[in-house]
Nucleic acid binder design. Structure first.
Lengths: 188, 188
DNA sequence: TAAGCAAGGCTACGTGTGTTAGCCTTGATG
DNA sequence: CATCAAGGCTAACACACGTAGCCTTGCTTA
């Protein structure tokens, strides 16, 4: 290796993540990232293809953390309890990285989304199968994750504006949704 | 009134909406909007404060359509049936305007979101109260709309990658969630 | 009817950002 | 010791948003 590298892809991604969460997507400029890691702007392009690519790397980084946190939260063996712990961990990380989280479900999905989704889905699918039966595992998992994702997205967007206790609404929804997917289909 | 206006705020918003849905947020440039409505770029600033303001106007426009579509869908008098129709209309409009829809729950919420949310919530809250009782109306409404929003967000982002029938998953979740919010709390 | 006036176009320009081209230093390697 | 490429750098381009300030137009009113 020639001359000592003054930065690294990891440092660039970390700086980008910091700027993104601290000041929002528009404030994530190549200039400011370069300042943070101690090089001039064009040097970033030795590590990162483009600004869009940097966004992709940042979201991958957060997605990786999400996967790890989710898997670490599962332990008890009881599917309902495990799902509660998993979704709590999911929500906690989303709160810690609100902007990146929201961007993960933005239009123009980034390449590599498929693999990411599969990694994140494995544990969920297993638990959903235990809870709702193999036959309904996929729709049950989709119902659960749709509810959780929707709830978190809305609270992060500040869409829960009518007062009331948001925490209570989370518990309410969690109880009801987990219960609902394991019941037989309702009668009209 | 002096010299004939060659464009209008409505035309600008319509052009912006079209560009946004057709080519994505990055392609929504003031230049292209101006071309579409037949004026030069700086003339847009007589009607619109900034590009961010144009985004705001576009999202308001879509939100208004959403509100109208939702209210028009409610008719039968049966709360469950009305909710099904309402959510179907909601989803249909989201599919017709996927990028704008996703942007509505993006970071950095736009001003005016409060009023929008209240307008959109009125019907939902009434139906939720009929279905789940006055006491649980708010958390029930939040559970329903969180599920629907999450489901739609994920399918628009292409996050349902594991195959299976997405339509069936929608029906599955809809049945289960509507049923769940009117039941008494589950026993552990 | 003629003068005034402001809405709403326009051109020209400044600033900031992403990105590329191409050079130079550096230190590990044969 | 000579080579060589990784990884810095400066310079410059393209293009976007946004502002300044002018000019035309046609309604309004004395």
């Amino acid at each position: 290796m020639p001359a000592h590298a003054q930065t690294s892809t990891a440092a660039i991604v970390a700086a980008g993540r910091h700027l993104l969460e601290e000041l929002g997507p528009d404030a994530l400029t190549m200039r400011d990232v370069a300042d943070m890691v101690g090089v001039r702007t064009p040097s970033l392009y030795k590590r990162v293809r483009s600004r869009a690519d940097l966004f992709r790397l940042i979201l991958e980084d957060v997605a990786d953390e999400l996967t790890v946190a989710i898997d670490a939260a599962v332990s008890s063996g009881d599917p309902a309890a495990d799902l509660r712990a998993m979704l709590a961990a999911y929500r906690r990380l989303a709160h810690a990285n609100p902007i990146a989280y929201t961007l993960m479900y933005a239009p123009q999905p980034v390449p590599g989304a498929t693999e990411r989704a599969e990694r994140m889905s494995a544990t969920l699918l297993r638990l959903a199968a235990e809870l709702a039966g193999q036959r309904n595992a996929l729709p049950a998992a989709r119902t659960i994750v749709a509810w959780a994702n929707g709830f978190i997205t809305m609270e992060l967007a500040g869409a829960f504006l009518l007062g009331g206790d948001v925490e209570q609404a989370w518990e309410f929804g969690l109880d009801r949704v987990l219960n609902a997917v394991r019941l037989p289909p309702p009668q009209p």
